[in-house]
Design a binder for these strands. Structure first.
Lengths: 198, 198
DNA sequence: CCGTTTCCGGAATCAGGTTCATCTTACTGG
DNA sequence: CCAGTAAGATGAACCTGATTCCGGAAACGG
């Protein structure tokens, strides 16, 4: 019996309340919020949180699963409407944008992309797959070199997401993204370098 | 009076012992070692560590200051013996190599490059300056684009250093480095893309 | 050798995450 | 509508680790 019976009503309600409180806290820029405080805001006791999530990290992962799903769905949609290289470029910028949404998301993206945290293993794999889709299409059309895979690019992007809070970080993030984008096209296309501010 | 009188002999000895124990532990692959354990190995009490270092992080920083100095001195030496773009390429590879020396160094490099930790503010600034030297020379010779600064590149490299422990991570690190290198030359040179395995 | 000053030791304190024995509550069949 | 029971909730206690702090010990200057 893989999935036991559905959650009891109060359990479902509490679970939702915890996720909501956690999400709000993270997006509000307090990624380090204590478990006890999340519980307080959700109107439950800490024990309740641990009934639903194995560990604090597991809760964090759950909070961001939705965002990750959204991000992973983007490549297919972008390829529908744009040439492979343009789709790739847009996706990279999308990542930066998402990192900009809030410190919390940025922290999660960084953990997904730049670490080996087993907690985000699943998210990482899906993300790499999404990138593979773009890179494959780009390589097939000859606009992108074929010797880089999603996992590698994901790694390379890790640094971009760890830089919120710096003065003017968003410009810098766009610049780094452009750098990687150009690196990906190096020797595969005849386009001019991406405009990178002045 | 900026610098008070020299440390008492036993103080100097203990300080050294602590740094040595910490360095050995980090290089041996236990970056998370407890302060108490560092103290034990150095033959002192925890209080002694806190007399010399404000915080655990401060101790870590001190341990790596030497390595950082070494790394920061490299650009000038490389420019003496190689063309600007080749010097840049070699320096990027040198970073990967250093990250490979041990998990500890890798952790520190990552903290320096990819975060805003005030602890490494100094190291970060010096590193960015070192990269500026290389980028400036490259731009002047026309081999590298002129719109990227050291700080930005440092950020981009952050991800590379957070990937130890993955299977085959070193190859991947070299690949990412090559990607960035090519991105830096995009539109500025006529060379072929860096060989990046396949 | 004595008075000072600087250090050292290590138990106590603090901070957060995690656990667990006990009390509640939602669902169930009758 | 009600008792029985399993699922859920609680929150004080526990654990791990960093940091603090108050005597006691050691070095230095004379």
């Amino acid at each position: 019996m893989p999935s036991s019976r559905p959650l009891r009503s109060d359990a479902r309600r509490n679970r939702e309340a915890v996720l909501t409180s956690a999400r709000e806290a993270f997006l509000a820029g307090e990624p380090g919020i204590r478990v006890e405080e999340i519980a307080r805001r959700a109107g439950v006791a800490v024990g309740t949180i641990y009934r639903h999530f194995d560990t604090r990290e597991a809760l964090v992962e759950e909070v961001y699963r939705h965002e990750v799903d959204e991000l992973c769905a983007a490549p297919a949609a972008l390829l529908d409407e744009h040439a492979p290289d343009e789709a790739l470029r847009r996706f990279l910028l999308l990542l930066v944008e998402h990192a900009a949404v809030g410190k919390g998301m940025s922290v999660a993206l960084e953990a997904i992309m730049a670490t080996d945290s087993p907690v985000f293993g699943d998210a990482r794999a899906r993300m790499a797959q999404a990138l593979d889709l773009l890179l494959g299409a780009g390589a097939a059309s000859g606009a992108v070199r074929g010797d880089v895979n999603g996992r590698t690019l994901l790694r390379a992007l890790g640094g971009v997401c760890g830089m919120r809070a710096t003065d003017g970080w968003q410009d810098e993030a766009v610049r780094i993204t452009g750098l990687l984008f150009d690196g990906l096209r190096f020797g595969a296309a005849d386009a001019a370098p991406t405009a990178v501010t002045h």
